[in-house]
Design a binder for these strands. Structure first.
Lengths: 162, 162
DNA sequence: TTTTGAAATGTTATAATGTAACATTGTCAG
DNA sequence: CTGACAATGTTACATTATAACATTTCAAAA
């Protein structure tokens, strides 16, 4: 299940509910370990992000939350910010959207393959890439704190349709 | 002046007017070659982007344009879109902002070093990075069309102040 | 158990970024 | 000249995000 060896595109069929459950339990443990509160809203937002299982916008999350209860944007953004800080979701800058992190636990930046046809997304975490970036930055005297790597194109299924 | 060997951070002192003039002449030639119209607005927007000489938002450009003449957002966005398509400016997704391209002519994605302290920016174009990305994507069966690489951290001057 | 203070959430309003749709103007090939 | 297409003007609005302050919740200390 390593993302590096076999990334999973999010629109492909697989046991979805299993993902979600696993992600939520994982998150719960992580918060417990770090003495952070995994509140209802935070849990619910993470669940919605995983349910969508492809990049989802903050206002989409908001709309889903509002089916249960009147909610305002700051609530969603706060939850998403928290989840980001915990490394439980990633924000995809080029989409203004969020995805569940494929392997939370250790903070990492990851690399994202974004299919422009089916809008699926896969997370990579290839040391070769991040190292090459860190090295080049260092060569310019630059200190890297964070890197954003987003790759737009066609996923295998959309490349070879049928 | 290769960006790869010696990237220039945009907040550093150098002959600014020279940059701007060169960029504008360069752009004019490029448009001529490709039978595209380098209109007043397009020229003016490119000039403003280069004058700022660090990432500038669309609405900042708008404000500067409006010192001369009443202008609406679509005018700015259209000009920026055109300049992007021509490879004359890059959009920095993580900043919602634009910078002049350090070496237009051939379409390329580039990599961007963004200083979180002084907000300067330097463009790299390191084949090692883009190749590593393309290779990893290909390994996952993914066809890359475009890549976004944005590196947040501290530029040399902000790292070693004084 | 109660207090209490910090964290989390609610609420209202608004800022910042970006685009749709249609009208008008400019440019140039024929 | 003129017709047609590209570029720009204009209005209105959509989308994304945050500021500021009120209220609630929760857990630890008294």
């Amino acid at each position: 299940m390593s993302a590096a060896s076999q990334p999973t595109f999010s629109c492909k069929m697989h046991d979805h509910q299993c993902c979600i459950t696993a992600a939520l339990e994982n998150a719960e443990q992580l918060c417990l370990q770090q003495s952070k509160r995994f509140t209802n809203i935070r849990r619910r937002v993470l669940e919605l992000v995983w349910q969508q299982h492809k990049p989802i916008g903050a206002y989409e999350v908001l709309e889903l939350l509002q089916r249960d209860k009147r909610t305002a944007p700051p609530t969603v953004y706060r939850a998403l910010d928290f989840l980001q800080q915990m490394g439980l979701v990633h924000r995809i800058a080029s989409l203004n959207a969020y995805v569940g992190c494929a392997h939370p636990g250790e903070p990492h930046d990851g690399q994202f393959l974004i299919c422009e046809s089916c809008h699926s997304l896969a997370e990579l975490d290839i040391p070769e890439i991040s190292n090459a970036i860190n090295r080049s930055a260092a060569d310019s005297g630059f200190t890297t704190r964070r890197q954003t790597v987003e790759i737009m194109g066609l996923c295998p299924d959309c490349r070879h349709p049928g």
